[in-house]
Structure formats: structure tokens, C-alpha cells
Simulated scan of single mutants.
Amino acid sequence: MHAMKFRSTFLVAAFIALPILLLGQHTNPAPLDTITPLYPDALIESGKDGVAKLTFVVNKKGLVEDPMVTEASEPEFGDAALVAITEWRFKPATFDGKPISQKVSLPFQFTASPENKLNAQVGRKVFKMIDVEPVRTRDLDERPVVVEKPRAPYPPALAGSGLDERVAVNVTIGPDGKVYNPEVLDMDRPIFLIPALVGAAGYVFEPPMKDGKPVYCTFEMTIWVYEGDTPPGRGETGRRPLPDGS
């Protein structure tokens, strides 16, 4: 079984050409060739999202000069944005049809992959490559026995809503009894994705056994994500409507 693959991403927010005081026909610089900033290696295990804002000059040839970080939630995000922006090429600003230099401000938003966010919340590497075929649950000496059953965290954005969700998750239980490579099989609302995966990854089982030896095995489980002290009853669907009726 292969580990789930996610990608860390970045977004470029509004491109802002800083105003200049000129009387005449003026056009702002426009990006022609862009390079995607890489999510910093040093922050991968943190699972952090972040932003970096740069100012720089687009010269008459459309090249970037004097780039500076004006704001960064983490220094590494600023460094990554600086490395990328030096490779950008622009159509230069013009005044009365002639190219001119102009100062520009540009924010970059970085988003950690769901995989890295999950690893950070659980405190260990949850997704990994497994070079053997996991044993099916029905082929084990006995069904997996739960040792620790943590509660899935509730999404802060839904605090006070009373909403809950029942999420079907497929996992691989390792010879150490820990859960690896959780994969959601059935879920209605994406906001419950990370909480459900965190809940599943926190389970600990007695080591699954096949012919008396500990093995990797596949296992399907149900994770409830709910608010309050009382878990939903077995007869409930866990799919109550959102406040807006959706």
C-alpha cells in the first residue's frame, strides 16, 4: 500500500504596483515569466501555513531589482519568496509608451500539505511507504484490539454549531500497533477531513498477528467528530445540516 501524497502549495495574492506621480499615459508592470516559490524544507515538519510580502523594483528591462521582505510570518517564507522573485520577468511599466522602472509590492501565501499538518498535530510521521503487502483483517489470527482510542479534535471554525460527522477511514496498522496512512473513504464535509485523520492516527492497537508474528494489516474504522461531551448515538447519521441549510 502506498502512502497518500499531498503537495504543499503557495498562492500569489493581488499584484500591487505602487503608485507613482506622473502626468501622462501610464501602464503598470505585468508578470511574464514566474517561478513558484518552494515550501521551505525547514518548516515541513511544523505543518505551518504562512505569508511573505515583498517589495521590489521592476526595471526598464522587466528585471527584478532590490527585492526586500517587508513582512513574513516565518523568516523561511521570506527567504523562499526572495529566491523565487529574482527569477521572475515582467513587461515593464511604461510612461507615454516608453519603459520606466517602477516599485512593486507582492504577497505570497504558503500552505502546508494536509500530510504535513497531520504529522505535526499527531507528533510523528503518519504517512510512510510500506514495502510489504498488508494482511487483510480477515486473515489475521484475531481481529485488531484497540488499546488507546483518542477523541478526534473538533474544528474550531464550527465551535458552538453542535454539528457532528461520521467519517469512514481506511488505515494500515503496523507491527507496533500504530496507525499509518489513514485514508478517508466516506465523508460529507471537507472541514472534518483533518480532524478525522488526526483521530484515526491517534489510535493504538495490540500488534496485529498472522501465524503468531506481528504484521502490517489493513483495517476500516469509523471516526466520529463531534462537539460536546456526549458522542452521537449509533442510530444518528452524523450529517446534520449546516446553519445555512447546506
Rank of each mutant, 00 (worst) to 15 (best):
R124Q: 08
F95P: 00
T137R: 14
D139L: 11
D211V: 04
I194T: 13
L185V: 14
Q102A: 05
F90H: 12
T9F: 13
D164L: 07
L54V: 05
D79T: 15
R234H: 13
V147G: 02
K128G: 13
G162R: 06
M129W: 13
P144H: 06
V58G: 02
L22I: 10
M221Y: 04
V122H: 02
A13H: 13
A200G: 07
F10A: 13
V179C: 06
K178G: 10
L23E: 14
I191D: 10
G24I: 04
T36S: 14
F90D: 08
D96P: 00
F10H: 15
D49C: 10
A157F: 05
P182M: 10
P232D: 03
A81H: 00
P241V: 05
W224D: 14
P40I: 04
P99E: 07
S8L: 00
V58N: 00
S46N: 15
L118E: 12
F219L: 13
F219M: 09
A200N: 06
R89F: 09
M209V: 06
N170W: 09
K103I: 09
K91W: 10
D141V: 02
A120G: 06
T86D: 11
W224C: 05
P31L: 11
L43E: 07
G97M: 00
Y39G: 06
F15C: 02
T172H: 07
R89K: 11
G160C: 02
S101I: 02
G78C: 07
N181G: 08
A168G: 09
A80N: 02
S8E: 03
P195L: 07
K98H: 09
I85T: 08
P156K: 15
E165V: 04
K53S: 14
Y154D: 00
E206S: 12
V104R: 01
P107D: 09
P241M: 06
T86C: 12
P243E: 03
D186F: 12
M4K: 11
E183C: 09
L21W: 07
S246I: 06
T36F: 09
P155H: 10
L197S: 00
E206A: 14
A17E: 05
R239E: 13
R89Y: 10
L158H: 03
E227R: 05
T36N: 14
E183K: 14
P231Y: 08
N28D: 15
F205C: 05
K48L: 15
T9C: 12
V122A: 01
T27W: 01
A112Y: 01
G228Q: 05
A81I: 03
I191S: 06
A80G: 02
T111H: 14
L158Q: 02
T86N: 13
A42Y: 02
D33K: 14
P150R: 07
S161H: 09
E165D: 11
G62R: 01
L23W: 04
V184D: 01
K61C: 05
F15V: 07
